[in-house]
Amino acid sequence: MKTPWWIAPCLLFVAALLQAAFFPALGLVRARPELVVTAVAIWAVLRGVREALPWAFIGGLLLDLFSQGPFGTAALALVIVAFCSSVGEASVFRTNFLLPTVIVFWASVLYGVIYLFLLRTHQMPVDWIGTLRHSVVPSALLSTACAPIVYWLLSRVERKTRSIVPVEW
């Protein structure tokens, strides 16, 4: 039931690259789909916390790399989000795309809040209300819109990798 080690870095690299370079070029600047958060949250629902945490850590480091923000900040926020998202693993509705979609929305909001909090601990000025209104919530809605596609893709990956002999994290 474990995934080959190279799947997560490859998928997350593509997601982070789209998020950092492709979406801004399309004009999605202040709010854009958080593809990495979406992928991690859905993987947490599909495969549980043990597989989602390494995804979260790797995805967070990639986001930190592209954003050139304080290194480890996005990783820490995403690890916590992955842990919280894994509550969906226990649900009987986890194979229906609606549950992961709802979880993606709240995961994106939670990620934004934790990330802003961590920025504040780095002594960076944070406008909580404005940033939540103009960036975090719109980004969460866009992530939710993308969630069915990401879910479809990841559930295919999940099915194909189900029988592969694992490499332990």
Partner: peptide, 24 residues
């Protein structure tokens, strides 16, 4: 062989904080 999820969480939180400290 299969530690509790909380142990995994603590491990990755510690790793992330370690990266942040190394970066600082």
């Amino acid at each position: 062989a299969s530690p509790s999820p909380l142990v995994w969480l603590a491990l990755f939180v510690a790793l992330s904080i370690g990266v942040t400290l190394a970066d600082s």
